[in-house]
Simulated assay, not measured.
Amino acid sequence: MDKAELRRRIVASRADVADPRGSATAIRETLLDQPWVQMAGLVAAYWSTGDEPATHGLIFALWKHGATVILPILRPDDDLDWAVYDGPDSLAPGPRKLMEPVDTPRGVDAIRTAALVIVPALAVDPVTGIRLGRGGGSYDRALARVGPNVPTVALLHEGELVDVPAEPHDRPVSMVALPSGIVRIPGKDSR
């Protein structure tokens, strides 16, 4: 199956997620229980939208527990700049109506200093760690800047850990957080 067809199938199946709020809570609690998450001083994450596993509670909890959280700002070239999240009132709608931090952008390379990177995905391959995104390549560019020993975690609903066709520009993640727990990608676990 090609990526476009896989995207269509995953997006269609997300309409049937039984308990999205419960799934988001399970993912948040599982991640917050991990020592490598608790010790991460700088976390790059994203503000979820639509049918994605919700990150709002996770981001707020990380921030309240003392982590500096940086969120993406979509640039005109579809690359990602990064700025600091400073609570729920520090966000404003950006391009494509995505919520973005209003803090001063730190540049595309700010992700290099993160101790933990949390990214969106529609699916992740359980063997290679290749993630299927929305097709813009923004997160593949961002992941290319992340050091080899930094945990990279994609958040998924159950059933989205599937074979994903790989292309040369695709960058793998080292883990997937599902409502049922953490799945480490063989040979990619960087914590």
Rank of each mutant, 00 (worst) to 15 (best):
residue 2 D to T: 15
residue 3 K to Y: 12
residue 3 K to H: 11
residue 4 A to P: 06
residue 9 R to H: 11
residue 10 I to C: 05
residue 10 I to S: 03
residue 10 I to V: 15
residue 12 A to L: 11
residue 16 D to C: 09
residue 17 V to K: 09
residue 17 V to Y: 07
residue 19 D to L: 09
residue 20 P to R: 08
residue 20 P to I: 00
residue 21 R to K: 09
residue 21 R to M: 04
residue 23 S to F: 08
residue 26 A to D: 05
residue 27 I to V: 08
residue 28 R to I: 00
residue 28 R to A: 03
residue 28 R to H: 02
residue 29 E to M: 03
residue 30 T to E: 06
residue 31 L to P: 02
residue 32 L to C: 06
residue 33 D to H: 08
residue 34 Q to M: 11
residue 34 Q to H: 05
residue 40 A to H: 02
residue 40 A to Y: 01
residue 41 G to I: 07
residue 41 G to N: 10
residue 45 A to F: 04
residue 46 Y to A: 03
residue 46 Y to G: 01
residue 47 W to P: 00
residue 47 W to N: 02
residue 51 D to K: 15
residue 53 P to Q: 13
residue 54 A to T: 12
residue 56 H to Y: 14
residue 57 G to D: 15
residue 58 L to F: 15
residue 59 I to P: 05
residue 62 L to P: 14
residue 62 L to E: 13
residue 63 W to Q: 13
residue 64 K to R: 15
residue 65 H to V: 09
residue 66 G to D: 15
residue 67 A to L: 07
residue 69 V to C: 14
residue 70 I to D: 11
residue 71 L to T: 03
residue 73 I to F: 04
residue 73 I to M: 03
residue 76 P to Q: 14
residue 77 D to Y: 15
residue 80 L to S: 11
residue 80 L to H: 12
residue 81 D to I: 07
residue 82 W to H: 09
residue 83 A to P: 12
residue 86 D to P: 06
residue 88 P to R: 14
residue 88 P to E: 13
residue 89 D to Q: 13
residue 90 S to R: 11
residue 91 L to D: 00
residue 91 L to S: 09
residue 92 A to V: 05
residue 93 P to T: 02
residue 93 P to F: 07
residue 95 P to W: 08
residue 95 P to C: 05
residue 97 K to F: 07
residue 97 K to M: 11
residue 99 M to G: 02
residue 101 P to S: 01
residue 103 D to L: 06
residue 104 T to C: 06
residue 104 T to H: 10
residue 107 G to L: 09
residue 107 G to R: 04
residue 107 G to K: 05
residue 109 D to N: 10
residue 110 A to W: 01
residue 113 T to A: 14
residue 113 T to C: 04
residue 114 A to V: 00
residue 114 A to G: 05
residue 117 V to H: 00
residue 118 I to Q: 08
residue 119 V to D: 00
residue 120 P to Y: 13
residue 120 P to W: 12
residue 124 V to Q: 01
residue 126 P to Y: 09
residue 130 I to S: 09
residue 131 R to H: 03
residue 132 L to Y: 00
residue 132 L to S: 01
residue 135 G to N: 13
residue 138 S to Q: 08
residue 138 S to Y: 07
residue 143 L to Y: 10
residue 147 G to I: 00
residue 148 P to Q: 04
residue 150 V to I: 14
residue 150 V to C: 05
residue 150 V to N: 00
residue 150 V to K: 02
residue 153 V to D: 01
residue 155 L to W: 06
residue 159 G to S: 04
residue 159 G to V: 01
residue 163 D to Q: 05
residue 165 P to Q: 03
residue 166 A to T: 05
residue 168 P to A: 06
residue 171 R to F: 00
residue 173 V to E: 00
residue 174 S to E: 02
residue 177 A to K: 11
residue 177 A to L: 11
residue 179 P to R: 09
residue 180 S to K: 09
residue 180 S to N: 10
residue 181 G to E: 06
residue 181 G to L: 01
residue 182 I to H: 12
residue 184 R to L: 08
residue 185 I to T: 06
residue 187 G to P: 13
residue 188 K to N: 13
residue 191 R to P: 12
